[in-house]
């Protein structure tokens, strides 16, 4: 049986037959159709909630567990709000206050939470593959909210949705991910999603943080921001993930800002309608100067709002597919 929108005030499209995914683990494995389904569902839910403000009841009676084994404020609250906007209950779970600190394994912790009749788990973990491990060991839906540097599918989707809202399509756009690609899950999810929707993707940053091997996957690799700026429709400025690096990959933050910081001077080289994005949290003065972050090209705060829309869509689609199974 499919979940149908029961809210009297709105009419949400039923989940299309092409969507069969109980879990959302990454964008690499998704088809173009899957990505479009996520995108269009998010757009629809955003409209139906008056811009992610109003409450629906399409997930009424369902329980979503937020399981964050790594610190997060933004993504956690965004998922929580998304669940509640759709009428679901939420359970919050933190690694520090949990049985994990008493020696319980990840799988046992998840099974315990699942036994509380949870329909979906939103999992963040510092180790790539941890949500995949859980998806093989529990029956509910698993949504990856970031697994180490691997993937962060809802972040990728919210970036795509933000571009889609501004441009109406991804096809033919040139999108550059700038900065720390090696340790960025946002970069990976964006790369797969953008490419499937027909965008040209550039990864740009210091050679110690941008692997040449991305070229094997049809991605352009550049070490010079100044060279690529004039061609870009979108710049997505990534944060340096100092916490994941063992050896500092560049000499100083000052040098990084000098080479890759987006500032007013560099903006002069950009297209008139360039979009400036950042997954945040942003470091003002490092990857982006305040005038650019707060300027007319910046869509950073749209990204945050769209995060709720994308997460509503992801929860709706995966829990619905789980019910069919």
């Amino acid at each position: 049986m499919k979940v149908t929108a029961t809210d009297s005030a709105v009419d949400i499209s039923p989940v299309p037959d092409t969507w069969q995914r109980r879990h959302l683990l990454g964008l690499e494995a998704l088809s173009k159709d899957d990505i479009l389904t996520l995108l269009h569902t998010a757009v629809e839910l955003k409209a139906a909630t008056g811009g992610c403000r109003d409450k629906l009841s399409i997930l009424q009676g369902k329980t979503i567990a937020n399981m964050f084994f790594e610190n997060s404020t933004r993504t956690r609250n965004s998922f929580s709000l998304a669940a509640r906007r759709l009428g679901a209950d939420t359970v919050e779970f933190s690694a520090s206050s949990s049985s994990l600190s008493k020696g319980e394994t990840l799988i046992d912790t998840a099974k315990t939470i699942e036994a509380m009749n949870v329909d979906a788990m939103v999992v963040r973990h510092s180790t790539p593959g941890s949500p995949h491990l859980l998806s093989q060991n529990v029956g509910c839906s698993i949504l990856n909210a970031g697994d180490g540097p691997h993937e962060h599918p809802t972040q990728g989707m919210l970036d795509i949705m933000t571009i889609f809202e501004q441009r109406g399509t991804l096809e033919g756009l040139t999108v550059a991910m700038v900065g720390d690609i090696t340790y960025s899950r946002t970069a990976r999810s964006n790369i797969w999603g953008l490419k499937k929707l027909g965008a040209h993707v550039i990864v740009c940053g210091p050679s110690t943080l941008v692997s040449k091997a991305w070229e094997d996957f049809g991605v352009e690799v550049s070490y010079s921001l100044d060279n690529i700026i004039p061609r870009c429709d979108v710049l997505n400025l990534l944060r340096i993930q100092f916490e994941r690096q063992y050896t500092r990959p560049f000499p100083s933050v000052r040098e990084y800002a000098f080479l890759y910081g987006m500032n007013r001077k560099r903006m002069e080289q950009a297209k008139d309608d360039i979009l400036i994005m950042a997954p945040g949290p942003i470091n003002r003065g490092v990857e982006i100067t305040p005038d650019v972050a707060d300027g007319p090209h910046s869509v950073i705060l749209h990204q945050v709002t769209n995060g709720i829309a994308v997460r509503m869509a992801a929860l709706y689609l995966t829990t619905s597919a789980n019910q069919q199974a």
């Binding site: 790539p128 180490g148 691997h150 340790y183 899950r185 692997s211 091997a213 996957f217 063992y246």
Partner: peptide, 17 residues
């Protein structure tokens, strides 16, 4: 090789390992 979990190559790059 510290903290390494697998061969370093394009697969480790994609997986973020």
């Amino acid at each position: 090789s510290q903290s390494g979990l697998m061969h370093s190559g394009s697969i480790s790059m994609v997986l973020g390992l």
